[in-house]
C-alpha cells in the first residue's frame, strides 16, 4: 500500500514557565492511502500535539526539536507559513473535539463552509454557495438551504459536528484528521457521526487519522491502531492484532479499563497512578512506574520496538528474549475471548 504520510522520529517540546515539557519524544508512524489509523492514548499522551504538527497549527510556544513529517515528498515541518496555508484545509483537513465551540458563533453556517471553497478553489460566491449546499446535504442534513442561512446556535451538537465535517471536506482533502470528533456527543449521535465518517471515507477515498481515548470508538473505525503513552508510541499494529493480541502492559491496562456490560460483579479496572511529568521525562520506560510487570531494565533504558508480526510492534522489554515470559492477566484474556466471540456473532 502507498504511504501518504510518514512521520519520522518526531520530537516536540513546549517552553513553559516551569521549564521545557517534552511532549513528543520520538514518534514514528506511517499513514497509508485510504486507511484509518487510530491514535489512542490518555490525555497528555501527545496524540493531539502530533496532529497539530501535521496541520502546522502548533501553539506558539511549541518547538519541533527533531524529526520530519513527509507528505508528497515534502517535509511539512520545514514549510514556510505561506506554503503550509496552501496545504491546510486543501490537502489535510481537521475536525475537532467539541462541535459546540468549533464554529464561529457570529457567522452563518453557509459562510463558514463557502469561505474555504472561495479560499482554496477560487470559486465565485454563487458557485461556492451551491457547492456548500451540496456539502451540507452530503453530510446528511436535511433542508440544506435553510441551514445554509442559519447560525451555529440554531443547530444541535450532532448537526454542528456534521457541519464541521462539511467544512473539512469542502476542498476534497486527501487526509482527514479527526481529533476526538465524537467525545463531546452523546452515544447515539456518536454512532451516527462515526457512520458518516466511514461512509464519506469510502465515497471520497480519504485517509483518516483518528485520535481518541475511547477504545470502543476505535474498534468501530480503525484499520490500524497506534497506542501512545507519555509522548511515545508504545504499540502499533492492525486493529485486530492490538485488540486481540496486545503485548504492551499499557495496552493491557487500557483494554481492561473498558467497561464491560456483562460483568457487573467486579469493580471497573483502572490503571493506578498518573502519567509521568514530561518536564522531567523518565530515563527508562515511561510506563514502568505504573506497571506491575516492570523489570529492572525498565528503569534504566527505554525499550526498542520488538517485532511481533510484520505489522505488529510493541515497545516493552517484556518481549526481549531474556525477559521472563509474562502473559496478559487472565481476566483480560477472558474478556478478549468474549470480544472475539462477540465480533464473530456480530459478523453473522
Amino acid at each position: 500500500m502507498e504511504k501518504i504520510i510518514e512521520v519520522k522520529n518526531l520530537h516536540v517540546s513546549f517552553k513553559t514557565h516551569n521549564g521545557t515539557v517534552k511532549a513528543i519524544r520520538g514518534v514514528d508512524f506511517d499513514l497509508y492511502k485510504g486507511e484509518t489509523l487510530a491514535i489512542v492514548g490518555e490525555s497528555g499522551s501527545g496524540k493531539s500535539v502530533t496532529t497539530k504538527v501535521l496541520m502546522g497549527i502548533l501553539a506558539k510556544n511549541g518547538i519541533i526539536d527533531e524529526g520530519e513529517v513527509l507528505y508528497n515528498g515534502k517535509d511539512l515541518t520545514k514549510l514556510s507559513k505561506k506554503e503550509m496555508v496552501a496545504i491546510r484545509g486543501k490537502e489535510i483537513a481537521m475536525i475537532f473535539q467539541d462541535p459546540m465551540t468549533s464554529l464561529n458563533p457570529t457567522m452563518t453556517i453557509g459562510y463558514q463552509i463557502s469561505e474555504s471553497l472561495i479560499e482554496h478553489q477560487d470559486l465565485d460566491k454563487k458557485t461556492a454557495r451551491l457547492k456548500a449546499i451540496e456539502l451540507i446535504e452530503l453530510v446528511g442534513i436535511i433542508e440544506p438551504e435553510k441551514r445554509y442561512r442559519q447560525y451555529p446556535h440554531q443547530l444541535s451538537g450532532g448537526m454542528r459536528q456534521r457541519i464541521v465535517i462539511a467544512i473539512a471536506l469542502a476542498c476534497n482533502p486527501k487526509i482527514l484528521i479527526a481529533d476526538e470528533p465524537t467525545t463531546a456527543l452523546d452515544v447515539t449521535i456518536q454512532a451516527q457521526i462515526l457512520e458518516l465518517i466511514k461512509e464519506l471515507q469510502i465515497k471520497i477515498g480519504l485517509s483518516i487519522i483518528f485520535i481518541t481515548h475511547d477504545l470502543g470508538v476505535v474498534a468501530n473505525v480503525a484499520d490500524r491502531i497506534a497506542v501512545m503513552y507519555a509522548g511515545k508510541i508504545v504499540e502499533y499494529g492492525d486493529s485486530a492484532e492490538v485488540f486481540y493480541e496486545p503485548k504492551h502492559p499499557y495496552t493491557w491496562g487500557l483494554l481492561a479499563s473498558v467497561p464491560d456490560m456483562d460483568d457487573q460483579d467486579n469493580e471497573l479496572y483502572s490503571i493506578h497512578g498518573a502519567p509521568p511529568n514530561l518536564l522531567y521525562p523518565p530515563k527508562g520506560d515511561a510506563f514502568s512506574a505504573r506497571s506491575e510487570y516492570a523489570l529492572n531494565i525498565d528503569l534504566e533504558e527505554q525499550p526498542p520496538f520488538f517485532k511481533i508480526s510484520d505489522t505488529h510492534y510493541a515497545a516493552t522489554w517484556l518481549l526481549h528474549e531474556d525477559a521472563p515470559k509474562i502473559e496478559m492477566p487472565q481476566s483480560l484474556l477472558k474478556r478478549i475471548e468474549e470480544m472475539k466471540k462477540g465480533a464473530l456473532n456480530h459478523g453473522k
Binding site: M55, I57, V85, A86, I87, R88, G89, K90, A93, M94, F96, Q97, D98, T101, S102, L103, N104, P105, E115, S116, E119, H120, V164, I167, A168, A170, C171
Partner: peptide, 13 residues
C-alpha cells in the same frame, strides 16, 4: 478558541 483553530485548519491566512 476552537473556532479560530478551525479557521486556521481551513487554511485561512
Amino acid at each position: 478558541s476552537d473556532y479560530i483553530m478551525l479557521a486556521e485548519a481551513k487554511g485561512l491566512t
